[in-house]
């Protein structure tokens, strides 16, 4: 092929390739990523039903995804963008159940003080203990390595 037809042919091929890379790069990618994440959630829910332990479906799913990433069964690029987006919008998902508190107001009123006091006090104690234990072990190891 020569001349004008060749230019048109190349242009058409070029367009087709660009289109493909476009679909693969961002449109399809999200559908694939979302499918993988939802499929893992489904497996987690099934395990939650089958195994009689009080472990939520999301924990099963998290362990499955983490194991799959470590072993390389699922590549990071196959879940990354959609996963990060879901983590980013996570606060939004807390709004409906928290607004549901207005329905539970009557049950809550009787021990509201207990809830607030227990929450605040235990948060301070947990923060102090976990932080200091972690820091102590790290410093202990560093000191031992220096010797």
């Amino acid at each position: 092929m020569q001349g004008l037809p060749c230019i048109f042919y190349n242009f058409a091929i070029n367009c087709k390739n660009r289109l493909h890379s476009l679909i693969n790069s961002w449109k399809m990618k999200y559908i694939i990523q979302f499918t993988i994440i939802i499929a893992i959630s489904l497996i987690g829910e099934l395990l939650n039903i089958i195994i009689p332990l009080p472990i939520p479906a999301s924990i099963y799913g998290m362990v499955i995804l983490f194991t799959a990433l470590i072993t390389g069964i699922i590549k990071l690029s196959a879940v990354k963008e959609t996963g990060k987006f879901l983590i980013y919008i996570m606060p939004l998902m807390f709004i409906p159940p928290t607004v549901g508190l207005i329905g539970a107001w009557d049950t809550m009123q009787s021990f509201l003080v207990a809830i607030v006091v227990i929450s605040l006090v235990s948060t301070i104690i947990v923060l102090a203990v976990s932080g200091h234990v972690t820091q102590w072990i790290i410093e202990f190891k560093e000191r031992r390595n220096k010797r």
Partner: peptide, 8 residues
């Protein structure tokens, strides 16, 4: 559930 799975 999917969002928590993504914490992995």
């Amino acid at each position: 559930t999917p969002a928590t799975v993504c914490l992995a």
